[in-house]
């Protein structure tokens, strides 16, 4: 079942379109935003809410790459693999990120913290190589800069887990 929040958000978007079906992509994104990814249950929930069939949603969900049908880590690293970034050395970064995180593109770290996904052109080619972590752009990257960025996410998390520990 959709949460109240999810339902409200979907309804707000549904007002932009003349029919239910049109909001289905947004609905999947909303579910993903709340749950991290779109599970079979998520598909079923959206299907029920929009009077669609799971197959119809699956058809759409598997077409678009920003709908995750598999669980992802807490942070999703989208590394641009398109031409300008490739020219500017994206492959080196991929290697570096992979080594650093101990995963290959498409995988999630064992601690569930990071998922590394190669991604098409992020539209910041004048600052290649580029990556996005969650909603944030990181540009003009090199391995040292990547280390810094990863560290900042790790620190942030340690802070929040510390906080949790203190609470309990």
């Amino acid at each position: 079942m959709l949460s109240e929040q999810e339902r409200r958000e979907i309804e707000a978007h549904a007002r932009h379109y003349p029919n239910n079906r049109a909001v289905c992509i947004e609905a999947l994104k909303i579910v993903q935003q709340h749950r991290g990814w779109v599970s079979n249950e998520g598909i079923a929930d959206v299907a029920e809410a929009l009077q669609m069939k799971p197959a119809e949603l699956e058809s759409v969900a598997t077409f678009y790459n920003m709908i995750f049908r598999k669980p992802v880590g807490k942070h999703v690293i989208l590394l641009c693999d398109s031409v300008s970034c490739w020219i500017m050395g994206y492959e080196r970064l991929r290697q570096h990120l992979g080594d650093k995180l101990g995963i290959r593109p498409g995988q999630t770290t064992a601690d569930g913290r990071f998922t590394l996904l190669p991604n098409v052109c992020l539209g910041a080619c004048d600052h290649a190589p580029v990556m996005m972590v969650d909603d944030a752009y990181y540009q003009d990257l090199d391995p040292a800069r990547v280390d810094e960025i990863l560290a900042s996410y790790q620190q942030e998390e340690e802070k929040s887990t510390d906080g949790n520990a203190a609470d309990s």
Binding site: A22, E26, S59, V60, N65, M66
Partner: peptide
């Protein structure tokens, strides 16, 4: 806001995407 895919830029594919289709 699209859910990703270069094809969405093609104007008729874009219309399908906007309608909630492939």
């Amino acid at each position: 806001v699209s859910a990703g895919r270069y094809m969405c830029g093609e104007e008729t594919a874009l219309l399908n995407a906007l309608e909630g289709k492939r």
